[in-house]
Amino acid sequence: MSLELKAGPTSLERLETAIARMQQKHGFVRVSADQPAFPAGLAALLLTDDPQRNLEVLDACVILPEALLALGANVARLVAGPDAAAALLQRFAVARAPAVVFLRDGDYLGSLNGIRNWQEYRDEVARLAAGPARPRPISIPVLGAGQPGACA
């Protein structure tokens, strides 16, 4: 008898599985960075990143759909994979993923960063969903080390 060792899924493969589950089970629509389609009405946009950098990303893929249940069918559910999320994080001046950006008719309502205790997370989702539109934060380009203008 021989035992074949096989590598487990990578962090990005686990994220893709989580996003596919969100799409199939909870009706999330995946958006792209170059043409994000923000529908009319209330929308919640989950911005993700490689879970190897931040394990909370996978938690958000499970927690957000549950937190949105209280809003019923009145909220469009959107998700951006790491390929699209980087530009959207910058567009909405969000420091890090996971983050949920709330929009109404394309207008910015606010964002929820990271994971919190369950009640606080649900309360913040409800507050942002019910709140008025606010000016979108000014996005500031993030420079990596070695890029012109970056601090050493």
Rank of each mutant, 00 (worst) to 15 (best):
G110P: 00
A99S: 07
A152Q: 11
N54D: 15
P132E: 15
P137K: 08
A60C: 07
E120M: 11
A80G: 07
L128V: 02
R127W: 05
V125C: 03
V57Y: 02
A67Q: 01
P65M: 04
G149Y: 06
R116C: 11
A60W: 00
P82E: 12
P39V: 05
A60H: 01
A60Q: 04
A67T: 01
L112Y: 03
N54Y: 10
P65A: 06
L68W: 02
L68D: 03
E4S: 15
L46M: 08
A73H: 12
L42E: 09
V57A: 06
K25I: 05
V29N: 05
A130V: 03
R134P: 07
P9E: 15
P36R: 02
R14L: 15
V75F: 10
Q52D: 14
L69T: 13
V75S: 10
R14C: 14
A93L: 09
T17I: 08
P141Y: 10
R14Q: 14
G110V: 01
F28C: 04
Q35G: 08
L55R: 08
L112Q: 02
D49P: 00
S2W: 09
A60R: 02
A93H: 11
A126D: 13
A7L: 13
A70C: 08
R14Y: 11
F38A: 06
I19T: 10
G27T: 06
Q147I: 06
G81Q: 03
A70W: 01
P98L: 04
G8E: 13
E124G: 04
F92R: 03
A93S: 15
R96M: 10
S32G: 15
R116P: 03
G149A: 13
V31Y: 05
F102C: 00
G144Q: 13
A70V: 12
P51N: 09
V100A: 03
A95C: 05
A93G: 11
A87P: 03
A129N: 03
T48L: 06
A130Y: 05
F92A: 04
E16G: 14
A7S: 15
G41Y: 08
P148I: 06
G114K: 05
L68T: 02
A60G: 08
G27D: 07
R53N: 13
L109G: 01
G110H: 01
P65L: 06
L88V: 07
D107Q: 13
R96F: 09
E56K: 06
L71C: 12
A33H: 02
Y108L: 08
E4Y: 11
P141L: 12
R136D: 11
A130S: 15
A44G: 05
R30M: 13
A84C: 11
P9C: 09
A18G: 13
S139R: 13
T10Y: 12
L3S: 14
I63S: 04
S111T: 02
G8H: 12
L58W: 03
M1G: 15
V101T: 00
F28I: 03
A73I: 06
A67F: 02
L46D: 00
A93K: 06
L109H: 03
V101M: 02
V125K: 01
L88A: 04
L3F: 13
R116A: 15
L42P: 03
A67I: 01
